[in-house]
Nucleic acid binder design. Structure first.
Lengths: 139, 139
DNA sequence: TTAAAGTTACGTCACTTACTAATGTATCGA
DNA sequence: TCGATACATTAGTAAGTGACGTAACTTTAA
């Protein structure tokens, strides 16, 4: 199954915000969109979701923009994925009434939980271009 | 992101085949579809994919049908998911040219690999309705 | 040879995705 | 306070995908 572009874009936008986290300033949508090669209009919609999830803070009006709500070390892939996808990263429908439907669904729920654990171990700070923390992943 | 129904159905059909694995006989599509509450026609398409992946064996002609190609302990969720989804379970597009696109893509590739490891630990035999191996999952 | 079974190809309809566009709303500075 | 600026929200849409159904073909046991 394909990871939604929206989720990937969310990671990129957040990584872009993280890259200037120390500077304490606000980044404008136009700025973020250009840096990550995204449509500004679409970026706004993604940022709105991220704001509602409490991952970014926005300031409206003149000199407005966005900034991370937490330190890049305290935001994980799990946070981002859950913000964009809702309750679970992989959601299996417990649809039909087949004999094995219950067991199959339960198995995928377990898989989703294990996946969440894995995603909790990847920090936003690792996604920032240029920060070579990439060498020591997965312990 | 939603787990495709096709993949869930594949798990159900295989679980159904596994439930009569010891009996050595062939199961017909109609039989499998009724047991798992699926459309027979759609089940055929799923079984075709599973056959091409080497997970089931088919016999054509009168008294034909399907049977598992391996013991239910030797088929894992990873096998099933890869058969239905192709190369990876979660595939992230390394689409645009944004600054963080490369890092983000790499992170999701890692997530997919970890996910595969998790799926390798869930055996088809655990999905069979009635076999209560469900109590001791994940060690 | 015929009926029962799997095989393949094609069609299709509803839904989702990935956007664009338009309009609304808040804030700063002159 | 006025207007420029920037975020917020909603609506619209074109292309793609998913989940089927249909139909014609092929193989095999009896």
């Amino acid at each position: 199954m394909r990871l939604p572009l929206k989720t990937e874009y969310a990671c990129q936008v957040l990584a872009q915000l993280a890259s200037t986290y120390s500077e304490e300033g606000v980044r404008q949508v136009e700025d973020l969109a250009v840096a990550e090669n995204l449509s500004p209009n679409y970026s706004v919609q993604i940022l709105t979701v991220l704001r509602q999830a409490g991952l970014v803070i926005s300031r409206r009006g003149k000199n407005g923009g966005y900034l991370l709500a937490k330190h890049p070390d305290q935001i994980t892939l799990a946070d981002i994925a859950l913000a964009m996808e809702g309750g679970s990263i992989i959601e299996s429908s417990l649809g039909n009434e087949g004999m094995s439907a219950g067991n199959v669904h339960a198995a995928w729920v377990r898989v989703n939980e294990a996946l969440l654990e894995n995603c909790r171990e990847i920090k936003l700070s690792e996604l920032v271009a240029g920060s070579e923390d990439d060498s020591d992943w997965m312990i």
